[in-house]
Write a protein that binds this DNA or RNA. Structure first.
Lengths: 160, 160
DNA sequence: CTAACTGCAAATTCTTTGCATTAGT
DNA sequence: ACTAATGCAAAGAATTTGCAGTTAG
């Protein structure tokens, strides 16, 4: 029904991930991925549910959770915790390439900024650290997060 | 009753934080801080509750939560989320000095390792980034986290 | 066809809140 | 004494689970 979004003749870029894992390509999954792809930034399960609901009203919240869990397991989506009790989800950078997720979070109002300062240095350090951690602890590292917490300009002046 | 832990004649190091903020020094708070100081590493509210309970059985879980909230607000404790739906708490490094909290988390079994590779570089980069973010976005940065997620050696071989 | 997927409702789990009581200062 | 702090029970919120019906391959 919807589905008009960067699809090749043989399906979308993520189809192989599904086929390969023996997972079925269903309408809910397509819509959820579409929503994630369109609005990219740290959505909560409920955010996703609401947007998905507009496109395809039959999809339940449970399916959102189950699909997100699958997508995270497959590595297509990253799950975050900003400390407000609800998880956020973000599609991994388009296709290949390591994705980086750097957030600046206001602990008072919950505002989240995606920053991009010193990314190159950061990425270099992360890579190095990842390699060393993998070697030393035998971990297979899948992902990482870097987050700064504090008070945004507004909350800082209002001084609650 | 308990309280035999690095206290000067005029009270523990954290007393001034309490007095200064107009907060009372109560038994639950003392015990909770003792537990945090003794076992340092990423405890959940329930972990803390259980240990506190052994020392002083009357303290309720609610008080644990309320005290932790206060301690976080005061900056004495750092709150973490490792993605398993329960928050973890850690006492900030002893006294002064910026504390750094670096974790390597197995997404399968939940094991958490505190790593210490490339800390100097990391700290330097963090400092620089913090300064820049404060300048650019007007944030007053209070804290940060760096976490790596992946499969630990065991979970990786068992290949679930 | 048949096993994976879905939706609903109920259940869990973690955390917060209301309120009467207790205890620092 | 005056209030902050506590404990209990109940409420809330996010996420998970059981199960019968649905659908992709």
């Amino acid at each position: 029904m919807p589905m008009r979004w960067c699809e090749g003749k043989s399906g979308n870029w993520w189809h192989r991930h599904f086929r390969g894992g023996g997972y079925r390509i269903t309408m809910p999954r397509q819509v959820i991925l579409q929503v994630l792809a369109e609005s990219k930034k740290h959505l909560s399960a409920e955010d996703i549910f609401l947007r998905v609901h507009q496109i395809y009203p039959n999809i339940g919240l449970t399916t959102i959770y189950r699909t997100l869990e699958l997508l995270v397991k497959m590595g297509l989506v990253v799950k975050f915790d900003f400390g407000d009790g609800r998880a956020r989800y973000e599609l991994r950078s388009g296709n290949g390439g390591t994705s980086h997720h750097h957030h600046l979070i206001c602990t008072n109002c919950g505002r989240v900024i995606d920053y991009d300062e010193f990314l190159d240095e950061e990425i270099e350090l992360i890579k190095k650290t990842e390699k060393e951690l993998a070697r030393k602890y035998g971990f297979e590292i899948k992902n990482h997060t870097i987050q700064f917490y504090g008070l945004c300009k507004k909350c800082n002046t209002v001084k609650k």
